[in-house]
């Protein structure tokens, strides 16, 4: 299969689905407030473009910010765990508690703590909680996978703990960290959107608010527009992470090399 068809096949498939959708809506005269036709959705998107784009930017901003904080916390914790076994045993279960608790369930608590007028901060915190675990788990795995002989090489050369961390553990774990980050960036978006639903009603300027508002008004075309932008945001974030991953691993890692050849 050539490269062109890799890109165009999904686009053609999606176009066919849109055409069938349009035909069915017209054929059965489905009401606009039940299922709008794709053309209605695109018209609504066009009419509300400014408002929708601002909301998208707002959601993306919090998502990216939460993702960065989550990544830093996760790598930091993994480093601490790698240096101290006792801290790892003590703290790892607590991070698992954060991971398994549904964000919706802890949202009210966080909102009370940061204040009802501080919705964005609450959303940020909730999104960080959702996003940090995959990076932590993968970085941890990366550190534990470091080649035994390379560790011995560092020991023979009397490397300090800092040198071993910076010159061996972190570079060795990089592909693992990036895999975690790729999962994490998607989760950060989900976390932000869910948190906006719970915490941000009325006071948030994100896409969730538009979805809630449009749903209440039965403006389903606008709701779909917001959904489309949400999907595009997710794809954008995934591609962003994939590009970063590619540019870092391009020269040396098997996963990238194999895809190229």
């Amino acid at each position: 299969m050539n490269k062109l068809s890799t890109y165009f096949s999904p686009i053609i498939a999606l176009s066919i689905i849109f055409i069938i959708w349009e035909l069915l809506v017209n054929l059965f005269s489905i009401q606009l407030y039940i299922l709008p036709a794709p053309t209605d959705i695109f018209l609504s998107l066009n009419d509300n473009l400014r408002e929708l784009l601002l909301a998208t930017l707002n959601t993306l901003k919090i998502t990216l910010f939460a993702f960065l904080i989550a990544t830093l916390i996760a790598i930091g914790l993994a480093i601490i765990f790698s240096l101290s076994k006792i801290l790892e045993i003590s703290l790892y279960p607590i991070t698992v508690i954060f991971q398994v608790t549904p964000v919706v369930a802890i949202a009210p608590l966080i909102i009370i703590w940061v204040g009802l007028d501080n919705a964005e901060m609450a959303i940020l915190i909730l999104s960080v909680i959702v996003a940090f675990f995959p990076v932590l788990a993968n970085t941890n795995l990366g550190f534990r996978s470091v080649d035994k002989n390379l560790k011995e090489l560092f020991l023979i050369n009397r490397a300090s703990k800092w040198q071993t961390l910076m010159k061996l553990n972190l570079p060795y774990a990089t592909p693992y960290i990036l895999t975690g980050m790729k999962t994490s960036i998607g989760l950060a978006l989900i976390g932000t959107v869910v948190a906006e639903f719970v915490a941000g009603t009325g006071s948030s300027a994100g896409l969730s608010w538009i979805i809630i508002e449009s749903g209440n008004r039965l403006d389903i075309a606008k709701l779909f527009s917001a959904l489309i932008l949400l999907v595009l945001s997710g794809i954008f974030l995934f591609l962003l992470m994939s590009t970063i991953e590619y540019s870092i691993l391009r020269r040396w890692h098997q996963s990238v090399k194999e895809n190229e050849s």
Partner: peptide, 28 residues
């Protein structure tokens, strides 16, 4: 000063050949 050659080359794949060779100097 001890040099150790393992059964596997044990190189660091993220470093170039030159950077692999200079590693012991860096560590010391």
């Amino acid at each position: 000063s001890i040099g150790f050659v393992f059964q596997n080359p044990t190189l660091m794949p993220w470093r170039t050949v030159l950077e692999n060779v200079t590693l012991p100097l860096e560590l010391n």
